[in-house]
């Protein structure tokens, strides 16, 4: 074999070393991790809202995780991970000070140019609120960007509501119309119960001057996109964050193909008009 020395340093296919500098349990099995670059020599680039990273737990594997926060400090990222399999389990078990690998940011994010002066309708289901959080924060920070912002969020139960403090802040400080509904709840819950799509007719927006940003389980996104189209939004104004089995994140491994698209490099955010027909085909 070649006697050349090994190469140290991150590339698009080799992770960079990161450290967990802060960790917060959102609720049982779901944690938000603040990550800091361990080696100054590794390149870092700011992520756009909606982009994702490949996170690596030593000896377990890599998983595609969207950024849930975008710190301005170079070398920092924020992600929210739900325990769903061996890799995400290992990631949620990481403690402050633990190391992990990170590749990214990858993919095409939410359409920041398209939200200007629009009524923005954010529809999130479950952990789908996490990839939306950076663009909601952006709209909360620059309140003049959008004409109005509605955040419709459906969680499984009252104790599985993500970012509760953010939700109140967006409602009370940023003037957003924040509506939370749960699939099922005990009688102590005073909020809405039912599918997130049932909230759509209850909010105000100008259909021809609106943008919908949708993230959640695929079935929920399909119904939400249809509901927004029924409400008068053109398909081009409806945006979805898609998920498929992303392994390499750079278009080499072929796993995340969705019709003509590679979710990793052409997405994960797509306008509805580009993927509507594909979404309707089973097992594609």
């Amino acid at each position: 074999m070649d006697a050349s020395p090994d190469i140290v340093g991150a590339t698009a296919t080799t992770p960079a070393s990161y450290t967990v500098v802060n960790k917060r349990w959102e609720f049982n099995g779901t944690a938000t991790l603040h990550l800091a670059r361990a080696c100054e020599k590794d390149s870092w680039s700011p992520a756009a809202p909606g982009q994702f990273a490949m996170l690596y737990a030593l000896g377990v594997g890599e998983a595609a995780i969207s950024f849930s926060g975008l710190p301005e400090t170079p070398g920092r990222y924020v992600v929210t991970v739900r325990r769903a399999g061996a890799i995400s389990d290992a990631l949620t078990r990481l403690k402050r000070g633990d190391g992990l690998g990170l590749r990214g940011p990858f993919g095409v994010g939410w359409p920041l140019d398209s939200v200007k002066n629009k009524d923005v309708v954010v529809v999130a289901g479950g952990l789908g609120l996490a990839p939306l959080r950076p663009i909601i924060e952006y709209l909360a920070h620059d309140r003049g960007v959008a004409n109005s912002v509605s955040v419709l969020y459906g969680a499984r139960s009252p104790d599985a509501i993500l970012f509760e403090r953010d939700l109140s802040r967006w409602r009370n400080d940023a003037g957003m119309n924040v509506r939370v509904t749960v699939d099922a709840a005990a009688s102590a819950w005073r909020g809405d119960v039912g599918l997130v799509t049932t909230l759509i007719p209850e909010i105000e927006f100008r259909p021809k001057n609106s943008v919908a940003l949708i993230c959640g389980p695929e079935i929920m996104m399909r119904f939400a996109a249809e509901a927004m189209e029924d409400a008068g939004l053109p398909q081009k104004a409806i945006w979805l964050s898609m998920e498929r089995n992303m392994k390499c994140a750079v278009g080499f491994c072929g796993h995340c193909q969705f019709g003509s698209y590679f979710i990793c490099k052409n997405g994960p955010i797509f306008s509805y008009d580009r993927i509507r027909d594909t979404l309707l085909v089973r097992e594609l």
Binding site: D2, D6, L100
Partner: peptide, 10 residues
């Protein structure tokens, strides 16, 4: 230590 480091073959 706590860190996870990576290296690749040329």
């Amino acid at each position: 230590g706590n860190a996870v480091t990576f290296k690749t073959k040329p």
